[in-house]
């Protein structure tokens, strides 16, 4: 079984530095990789979840999108 990684901290980081709809913006940017993994995330679902566990390639894609949109480096 693939190791899963929590992307919730990345979204929290992005919300601290990005615009109000940063979560939706990240989801738009990462849509192809989400679809490839048959994952349909929403901002509301992410907000309501304590942990959002995903495969490594989604984690990496979300991290890159968040850093690109905020122009900051995610240290977590």
């Amino acid at each position: 079984m693939d190791t899963l990684y929590d992307i919730k901290p990345i979204f929290e980081f992005a919300k601290a530095y990005g615009d109000v709809k940063i979560v939706d913006r990240i989801l738009i940017k990462t849509l192809p990789i989400l679809l490839k993994n048959k994952l349909e995330l929403s901002a509301a679902a992410i907000d309501e979840s304590a942990v959002v566990s995903v495969p490594a390639e989604i984690y990496q894609s979300v991290k890159v999108a968040a850093e690109d949109l905020t122009n900051k480096t995610f240290a977590g």
């Binding site: 109000v20 709809k21 939706d24 913006r25 989801l27 738009i28 849509l31 929403s42 901002a43």
Partner: peptide, 11 residues
């Protein structure tokens, strides 16, 4: 896809 796009168009 429509829902994601709509959220940001509304924004």
């Amino acid at each position: 896809g429509v829902t994601l796009a709509g959220e940001l168009l509304m924004e």
